[in-house]
Nucleic acid binder design. Structure first.
Lengths: 236, 236
DNA sequence: TCCCTCTATTTCCTATAGGATCTTGGAAAT
DNA sequence: ATTTCCAAGATCCTATAGGAAATAGAGGGA
């Protein structure tokens, strides 16, 4: 998909300034550089990014969809408040519905799924080990955390891609930002990272066995365990 | 300068120009006033609606989310092509997943759901009868068709509202535009309208019985019947 | 001390202008 | 006749400017 080497005849910088502004603001929000409830002034953002307010305005419209920012009709944008209990429960229910259905649909195309899913599994396992090593030393480098999150997301996205349903895939992407934000609070000990890797392997094995129901069940258990670990951490 | 202090309905106009532009363009698209593939020039739209390009641009970003328009990065917007077979199947699968899950969740709040759902059911039944009457006479007034669609949407939205899950509700809304566009092709004979009304009543009865599984099953059958009627029509 | 009011600054929102790019039409050359 | 090239028009994209509303803060009165 990303054909870098050839000099840009057409597809390289084929995305307007609006998209780059969107990526930058999204990064700011996901990194937690701004605190919840803080105002996101369009003019100020435009000055910070050294662009005009117009593309910033378009990017903010796009960001509304992610749930990371809230808009009040003539009073501007704000960083969305952190997810509290009820909202978190709804997010998990929605994610559970999507992941289970995606696994069910993807089981029809197991042959196309398995190679790339195994690759993603190994990638995730490697990142898990790196996290565990660092956690024993006490330090938590941000770059490693990001790499781990990416590998986890990659694993799940493979299944959604194999589901062959663009709408379900889009729904998962639309929840992605909030899910990512929630995930940041989950990694607390090496136990969680290790368990997630084990559950991922169980999912792959279930797919490989050809039993669709087993794959769906493994996925359901994985998400429910993620939920359990999440609420356990937030309570501490 | 002291302008006229007309504050009669001032509080209601709490939404910017962007939202009104969005509503207007959405209406154009849903009414089928523009053919698929046609270009949607921002400047031209701005002149037609007598506004500046900026709010039109924001509305178009919002419309991307509905799937009714497509954007090419430096070449403008186009009306999305009509849904072909594969895409239609995916849309139904996604809708089936959402409606089934919403029914399952809503069954927990049956007491709050039933009164409003019964009201929506009667409304839908009345609109169905009006459609059937007119269909016997051969004429199909557009206003009645719209009213029927609205009553059908109202029925389903009641269940999503009772599900208590804002994310699932948002997903359904995001599919709403495409679903609406698809629905327009379904009404062909009085049989379909009557059957939909019967199935709606079966759903309400299942909810009223207190059997959650029965409600889910009734909903699943309804959606699958809608799918069957839809593909039957598109084949003709 | 508390509250109200009024002002000033900030910010949102829309309009207008200009540069860069794409499309379209016709004319010229093979 | 078909293809290529070029120029004019239209369109997208971004920047700048100005009006309207809202927030913050100071000052006066109870």
């Amino acid at each position: 998909m990303t054909s870098l080497p050839i000099r840009g005849v057409g597809e390289l910088e084929r995305r307007g300034l609006r998209d780059r502004v969107y990526d930058r603001i999204l990064e700011m929000l996901l990194e937690g550089e701004v605190e919840p409830g803080a105002r996101l002034s369009i003019d100020t953002l435009a000055r910070q990014l050294d662009v005009s307010p117009t593309p910033v305005r378009e990017a903010m419209v796009q960001l509304e969809r992610t749930g990371l920012v809230t808009r009040e009709a003539l009073r501007g944008y704000r960083v969305a408040p952190p997810l509290e209990g009820e909202q978190l429960a709804e997010l998990f229910d929605a994610r559970l519905m999507l992941e289970v259905e995606a696994a069910r649909l993807a089981s029809r195309h197991v042959d196309a799924l398995l190679p790339s899913l195994r690759k993603a599994l190994e990638h995730h396992a490697r990142e898990s080990e790196r996290i565990v090593e660092r956690l024993d030393q006490g330090s938590v480098p941000l770059s490693l955390t990001r790499a781990y999150f990416d590998s986890d997301l990659e694993f799940h996205r493979e299944i959604f891609a194999a589901s062959g349903n663009r709408y379900i895939q889009e729904m998962y992407d639309s929840l992605g930002a909030l899910t990512h934000r929630m995930r940041q609070a989950i990694i607390r000990g090496p136990r969680d990272v290790h368990e997630a890797a084990v559950e991922h392997r169980a999912i792959v094995d279930a797919f490989a066995s050809g039993d669709a129901d087993a794959a769906v069940l493994a996925m359901r258990r994985h998400i429910e365990n993620v939920r359990a670990r999440s609420v356990g951490d937030t309570a501490s």
